[in-house]
Nucleic acid binder design. Sequence first.
DNA 1: CCACATTTGTCCGTATGTATC
DNA 2: AGATACATACGGACAAATGTG
Lengths: 79, 79
Amino acid sequence: MPATPDYIRISDEIATDARSGKLKPGDKLPSIAELCAQYKVSSSTIQLVFVRLEAIEAINRRQGKGVFVTDPKTWLRKP
Amino acid sequence: MPATPDYIRISDEIATDARSGKLKPGDKLPSIAELCAQYKVSSSTIQLVFVRLEAIEAINRRQGKGVFVTDPKTWLRKP
DNA sequence: CCACATTTGTCCGTATGTATC
DNA sequence: AGATACATACGGACAAATGTG
């Protein structure tokens, strides 16, 4: 059986952290470089994570500043 | 003004076609190779489009078979 | 204003795996 | 067996926004 793809697993973990309160609305995620190191994946995979989380409005990406978590209450679904 | 990124523009066009009825629920999208040719982008960009559309449940991806449009009424939002 | 470092943003080409026909 | 098609992941190139000095 196929293991869960990295980009699904990582976005689910971030979503879980936000729902549990470990990440709060407005919190800035680690930089892409740090997330790459933390999860041992490439930046392309992290970008996939961001596209997926952004599509459901779970994060807010601001070029040059960072990626910020939104309030889970406003998410379109639980990824 | 920043040009709209390809993966946003393409997923918006597909969404518009589905909403207008040009694409109907259950319709199969052209193959990745055909979409690459049609929009003159790489397969990586098409995969970004798919991840984005799948996140809002606008498409259903079936490995080896194709990518199918869902009913816009069930989408999580209008991309 | 300018230079620089940091960070995110987009896109590409390729490799490999898996499912279907 | 072979062809087709989608799935995941990588690494790199370059652009754009921000902040600091």
